[in-house]
């Protein structure tokens, strides 16, 4: 029973981080109709910034200081997003999708090199924060306390996003713009401003995913591409552009991956791809996507 509970917690931990990444990806696509391939490295950027802030800049500080610095990666990714959208992406909105894919793929590569240029090729760690939280007893097993924080942040992000999009003025404007950008503009909505806000929020989520997970695993080159692939599996299953889909997709991938690691480690990724392929065959727009 304890083992099952640990598996459940691990699934939720993984799903929380995946939701943050895939939710941001889906939000950006839902509003702007851009498949942001650079999203994975915005997650990595968030991880690197937090690892640098917690593990290097404030290495000798106390836990409260580290906790204050934890969202630094998310804020840095959001700021980067706020710069990238108007400068690199906006000129491509009126072009064919291939240009946008090429541009964001190029950005993915550039960001990878930027990370290497700033922080070098070696992993960056913020494990002192993870270790300072200690462990909790779960039945006869022990479980890292920090992981509960990650799960809590993931759950809080899902609730916050739902409330933000369905219960605020900005959420109404965001949904209107995503459904009919021309009409929103004709009703007085500054679409460019909405785009930059949506992109910044999406990047914030990716950065938060990286920032929150980096104390329990190091920031390494290539982590962005790995995360991007899994985020795509999530949005294919849930439906690109749907936040509910990102949540359900993240939970499915989280549970299947945990089960895969435990019982069929060799084909863990293959099973995930298979599920994504099945969803594509049965419901091409994803479980919550609109055909």
């Amino acid at each position: 029973m304890d083992v099952l509970l640990i598996h459940l917690l691990n699934s939720l931990l993984y799903a929380s981080v995946l939701f943050l990444i895939a939710g941001g990806l889906s939000l950006i696509y839902g509003v702007m109709r851009i498949v942001n391939l650079a999203h994975g490295n915005l997650y990595a950027f968030g991880a690197y910034v937090t690892a640098w802030a917690v593990g290097s800049v404030a290495a000798g500080a106390s836990v409260p200081v580290w906790l204050v610095l934890l969202p630094a990666g998310a804020l840095a990714a959001a700021m980067l997003g706020a710069i990238l959208e108007p400068t690199l992406l906006r000129p491509f909105y009126r072009r064919a999708e291939e240009y946008q894919l090429l541009c964001t793929f190029g950005l993915l590569m550039i960001l990878e090199d930027v990370l290497r240029f700033i922080w070098g090729p070696y992993p960056l760690s913020a494990s002192t924060l993870f270790e300072s939280f200690g462990s909790l007893s779960v039945g006869e097993s022990i479980y890292p306390t920090y992981n509960f924080l990650v799960i809590g942040v993931g759950a809080a992000a899902a609730v916050f996003l739902w409330a933000f999009i369905y219960r605020t003025k900005f959420g109404v404007v965001l949904r209107a713009t995503s459904q009919n950008m021309r009409m929103a503009a004709a009703l007085g909505v500054n679409v460019n401003r909405v785009y930059i806000q949506a992109f910044t929020l999406g990047c914030f989520m990716a950065g938060l995913g990286g920032a929150i997970i980096v104390p329990s695993q190091s920031a390494v080159l290539g982590m962005g591409v790995d995360a991007l692939v899994l985020a795509f599996i999530v949005v294919v299953i849930g439906g690109l552009g749907s936040l509910e889909g990102a949540l359900v997709g993240a939970l499915i991938v989280g549970f299947v991956r945990e089960a895969g690691i435990t019982w069929f480690a060799e084909i863990e990724l293959a099973v995930l791809y298979l599920i994504a392929a099945l969803v594509l065959l049965v419901r091409p727009a994803g479980l919550f996507g609109r055909p």
Binding site: Q179, G188, V189
Partner: peptide, 18 residues
């Protein structure tokens, strides 16, 4: 140009806020 997923009230809210 009615926003299909928004309620009629929300369709109005956009203009009234602006």
């Amino acid at each position: 140009g009615i926003f299909p997923d928004l309620s009629v009230e929300e369709n109005f809210q956009i203009t009234s806020w602006l």
